[in-house]
Write a protein that binds this DNA or RNA. Structure first.
Lengths: 320, 320
DNA sequence: TAATTGCGGTCAGTTCTCGTCCGCGATTGA
DNA sequence: TCAATCGCGGACGAGAACTGACCGCAATTA
């Protein structure tokens, strides 16, 4: 019966909206008898969703955390928030989850009603406001590409290669990969009959998704490793992979409270100073973020970081 | 039957994982006959989920965007990405959706398995790396508070008031509000028998959620308006509400491509220059973000922004 | 102690499920 | 143009599940 399944879903939804429900309240809401509610709860439990029940006058049902994530039932505003949040995460704000974010975003955007899609794109104009530096990629395009990889849909797009030559590409995509600095598309080029790695910021205009193609596996099986192997040495390091080091004039204990531990490490340097080292490559943001701490500081290396500081000073001095 | 509902959910999940499925493939996967799949699809459609079917040799079923959002079935990694993204969004990176993000986060965290929760907190150490300035609030606490508001659960916590006096509070919470700069908790103080607005960054230590209390509505009905009324004039403007204005030495057309339109407006100032004005209050991030464009610039106002630029220069000059 | 609330067994009537048959129509590619 | 593929949906019948109504029990709170 459709009713039964729908009610189960509605029940799950209600339990996510509010924590505590009495059986009677649920029964009224779903317009069935209380006994049916008890049976539905039993069904949810047998499906693995941990619905807890507490007897007594302050009792009721609640959905708690279990071994598996139940289907999330979001309202409109929440869905928009999730989409916007995923875009931010994908844009490199948080290290290490860019690709997963894009995957989740592709999943969400596939079913996102268009009225919500408009709100998302309106809001995420702000997304990149203070993002990391590095090339800006349209999150929509990333989601499209990731969706095409998932669906094994062919992709047609215009591409400008490293040597500035433009070409039209017909491809069967395999994966979208983030190097920590740039986004790449790994795809089988149907015209050239070979694998190619495309820098996504070099894709021009709209990407057209075509008919379903073959599901391809990149040589070696690991797209990330493939991209890494394809990159010319040093290319991945256009943003040099060298960590940045800055000496701060505050005790290490104070600094470690203010420095995000995932992003950088703090080591003491005497009683009243410490050295902050980025875990990954240095970036200009590391510099300004440190400067915004508004404490005495000194760039230890690499030289490019000091150069970046001088450039920033030369921009800011006449400005003020 | 439990089986039927579970299969419907599984079907929805499969359709979200990949775009195109033939009926036979679904039947094999779910271990039922093809006819049952057709009937299940019919059920999904009658529930409002737009499952499209295409006949022919390249046909199959796919889930498309409809009027309503279907339940999202996320795998572990995706759930973590969503949680991390929501934390970022809540921390003020994107203007206007902080409160919704916290609501969605509270919903997600309620059912998030603990193994995933650990991964989320590990990852979101980096969340605030380059966030807006303004006080840092633990996203966990925000989610707890928002959850308590939703569930009408009493809250007990230690609070340090503006005059530095510490006290223990027993409250029935109503809403969590973001002013654009700070987070506030609107709650009914059970001991003082009146409404109070708590600055969340002044709440000390752990918050304990207690028994279910009355569901309260703040006087006036609009928590945001209530907080606004409670704030002393000027308090909301500790981060002054005055917009920042910076003159850039590039044509307006170029600038508007590089300036997020939601965050700031661009007006031409002659042929070769333009003026960028923040939509909301200025912040130090506006300054450094503009500086990172690496173009000639000049701070037009307010004076505090120019002062911030000088401070930054004075920190950076000895550093390099 | 009394009230509230969840838990679960039983029963009977109704309803739905599911596989198997069937033919139809649309689409694609040889 | 033809054949293969695939979605669509009606009909049938045995079996199973659903629902509400009743029952008593146990736990919790005031």
């Amino acid at each position: 019966m459709v009713q039964t399944s729908a009610r189960l879903l509605a029940l799950l939804s209600l339990l996510q909206i509010r924590r505590e429900w009495t059986g009677q309240a649920l029964a009224d809401r779903l317009e069935v008898g209380p006994r049916t509610i008890r049976r539905d709860v039993e069904k949810l439990r047998s499906l693995g969703y941990p619905v807890e029940g507490a007897p007594g006058v302050a009792g009721g049902y609640r959905l708690s955390a279990g071994g598996e994530l139940p289907p999330l039932l979001l309202d409109d505003a929440e869905a928009v928030a999730v989409a916007v949040g995923l875009r931010t995460a994908a844009s490199g704000t948080i290290a290490g989850i860019e690709e997963t974010s894009i995957r989740a975003l592709a999943k969400l955007e596939q079913v996102l009603p268009s009225r919500l899609r408009r709100r998302v794109s309106a809001l995420s104009g702000a997304t990149s406001a203070f993002g990391v530096d590095g090339p800006r990629i349209d999150a929509d395009m990333l989601a499209t590409l990731a969706g095409a990889c998932r669906d094994a849909a062919r992709l047609h797009f215009a591409y400008v290669a490293r040597d500035e030559k433009a070409s039209k590409r017909n491809t069967e995509p395999c994966a979208v990969v983030y190097s920590g600095y740039r986004w790449y598309l790994v795809a089988f080029d149907l015209d050239r009959e070979d694998w190619r790695t495309f820098r996504i910021d070099r894709i021009q205009g709209k990407v057209r998704a075509g008919a379903r193609g073959r599901r391809r596996t990149v040589p070696g099986g690991d797209p990330a490793a493939y991209v890494k192997g394809q990159l010319r040495p040093g290319e991945a390091g256009e943003n040099p992979a060298e960590p940045g080091r800055i000496r701060l004039g505050i005790p290490a204990a104070d600094a470690s409270r203010r420095v995000p531990s995932r992003y950088a490490t703090v080591e003491p340097d005497g009683e009243q100073a410490c050295v902050v080292t980025t875990r990954g490559a240095w970036s200009r943001n590391f510099l300004v973020w440190t400067a915004l701490l508004d404490e005495p500081m000194e760039v230890l290396g690499p030289p490019e970081l000091a150069q970046a500081a001088r450039t920033l000073v030369s921009r800011l001095t006449p400005a003020a």
